[in-house]
């Protein structure tokens, strides 16, 4: 490849985004909605018009299947240090057995992306925050590692990094001394793709996970939520979680 070609490729990639943005502007707003779905131009901030959510059907979640967990670990480069008590787990498979009836079931548990997240309430520096579109994240640049959010989260969804890391996934920066949890694969979502766990579950044809915009009445998740009853874990806390369950 000649030098000029290289430059051209680079330029094209650069201009790609600008083109996407201007194309969006050129279309009527309505058309943009139907045509591009949630694809937002890269230079536009996320808004509260969207609320990302996930519906997990425990009845479809297969016992012994760990694909969602594996996909998450691979996607974000989560590695273990042979210290299971502190090794990061953004999503985990939980097995439940009813004490009265003996009925067993499994389901994945992850950050519930609460609308009123206790982790955000307690964080002294504002490192724990909720994006406009409902995704709860840790801004690791300002996290002081106090771990108060880990104490406050009702779902045990957060992990703390104890070890020095290298070769992180470029789109999933993580480092020693900070707290982390499921990001709803925010780098994928901003790119109009589905989270890795959902993709893996669907690929396996289990279809236990549905991801989408809970504010968009035509999205699959909104329609399923409307049609069938669903639960929030620890609904008593009134956190209005972004992750909903069926069959628990």
């Amino acid at each position: 490849m000649s030098e000029q070609e290289g430059i051209d490729i680079y330029r094209r990639r650069f201009l790609g985004n600008a083109a996407k943005a201007s194309a969006g502007l050129a279309l009527a707003p309505g058309i943009m909605l139907t045509e591009l779905g949630h694809a937002k131009p890269a230079d536009e901030a996320v808004t509260g018009q969207v609320r990302w959510g996930m519906l997990i059907d425990s009845n479809k979640c297969a016992e012994g299947c760990n694909d969602c967990v594996q996909a998450c670990n691979d996607e974000h480069g989560l590695t273990g240090f042979d210290r299971p008590a502190t090794d990061a787990q953004w999503i985990r498979k939980v097995k439940l057995k009813d004490r009265q009836t003996g009925h067993t079931q499994t389901l994945p548990l992850l950050c519930q992306h609460c609308e009123h997240p206790p982790c955000v309430d307690v964080c002294p520096t504002g490192a724990s925050f909720k994006r406009e579109d409902g995704i709860v994240l840790v801004d690791k640049h300002i996290c002081i590692g106090c771990r108060y959010c880990m104490m406050a989260c009702p779902y045990k969804a957060r992990s703390f990094i104890h070890e020095t890391l290298q070769d992180q996934m470029p789109y999933a920066p993580r480092g020693k001394g900070t707290v982390e949890s499921c990001t709803f694969c925010v780098h994928r979502v901003d790119d109009d793709r589905t989270p890795a766990c959902v993709e893996a579950c669907t690929a396996e044809n289990h279809n236990a996970l549905v991801f989408g915009d809970m504010h968009d009445p035509s999205s699959q998740i909104s329609q399923e939520l409307e049609r069938h009853s669903s639960q929030q874990i620890r609904a008593d806390l009134q956190l209005n979680t972004g992750v909903r369950y069926r069959g628990i």
Binding site: P84, Q89, R92, V94, L96, K97, D98, R99, L109, I233
Partner: peptide, 13 residues
């Protein structure tokens, strides 16, 4: 988290 249920996981639930 799950009243009335016994919980097991790889994450010490």
């Amino acid at each position: 988290m799950f009243p009335g249920k016994e919980v097991t996981s790889t994450f010490f639930d």
